[in-house]
Simulated scan of single mutants.
Amino acid sequence: MIRAALLMILLGGAASAQAVCSEDVVSIRGDFGQARFKVSIADDPAERAQGLMNVQSMPMMEGMLFVYERPQSPQFWMRNTLIPLDMLFVTPDGTITRIHKQAIPLDETPIPGGDGVQMVLEVNGGMADRLGIAVGDQMQHPSFNEDAVWPCE
């Protein structure tokens, strides 16, 4: 009940989740329903290296989307990252294949994303569980090509 009410408040109703794609928004859909995150894009080596380092807080429905030129096996760490994060690892077609929950601030232990990952969405730690986001859910963003499981309209 509380989660459903939270989702309705966060999404502003189901219609807003159907909005046209834009560079600063990532949409996710799955058995839980749909959610939208306002994102900053990290799509070059310098931006990806910086990531969310030294960020002291982040609004609830915001995050950072790491975009790679081609599928790969990325590894992350939390060096100089001050807030816990959930990391959603995504294939080129927009399918979430792995979720690393509650990455520990300042921990330098490598966090592997698995093979074939082209995008990684970092959101506040605990957000995946709070919303019910799971492996197999689908992501929508203009960075996905025409083969996306949930293409932009």
Results as ranks from 00 to 15, higher is better:
A35I: 06
E122H: 01
R3S: 12
H100F: 07
A17G: 15
A17T: 14
P110K: 11
R130P: 02
D24I: 03
G33C: 08
R70G: 02
A49P: 03
D137L: 00
M53Y: 05
K101Q: 13
D43S: 11
R48I: 07
I2W: 13
T109S: 07
M53L: 03
S57T: 05
N80Q: 13
D115R: 14
L7K: 04
R48H: 06
I99R: 02
G12Y: 09
T97G: 15
M60K: 13
L10M: 06
L82G: 00
V135S: 02
F66P: 00
P151T: 03
G94S: 07
S40K: 10
A42C: 00
D147N: 13
Q34A: 15
L6D: 11
T91V: 05
R79H: 08
G30V: 11
Q138K: 12
K38T: 07
S57P: 03
D137N: 03
V39P: 00
L6N: 13
P84M: 02
A148V: 08
Q56A: 14
T95H: 04
N145G: 14
G114Q: 07
V120M: 02
R48F: 03
S73T: 14
G33I: 08
E62W: 12
D44E: 14
E146Q: 08
A103Q: 02
V20F: 10
D147V: 00
E69D: 13
V67Q: 03
I96A: 09
N54P: 00
Q72L: 09
D93T: 07
L85H: 07
F76H: 08
L11Q: 15
A46V: 15
I96L: 11
W77R: 00
C152E: 13
H141M: 03
Q34E: 15
G12T: 14
V25P: 02
T109D: 03
I104D: 09
A128M: 12
M87C: 03
Q140W: 00
G114W: 09
I133R: 05
T97S: 15
W77C: 01
I41D: 13
M64R: 03
L82S: 06
P45I: 08
A15K: 15
D86T: 04
Q102E: 09
P45H: 10
L52M: 11
F66V: 00
L52Q: 09
E47G: 07
P151V: 05
I83R: 03
Q72S: 12
A35K: 01
V90S: 07
L7P: 01
E122G: 00
R130N: 08
K101E: 12
P105M: 05
K101H: 11
V117R: 06
K38N: 04
R3K: 10
M139V: 15
A128Y: 10
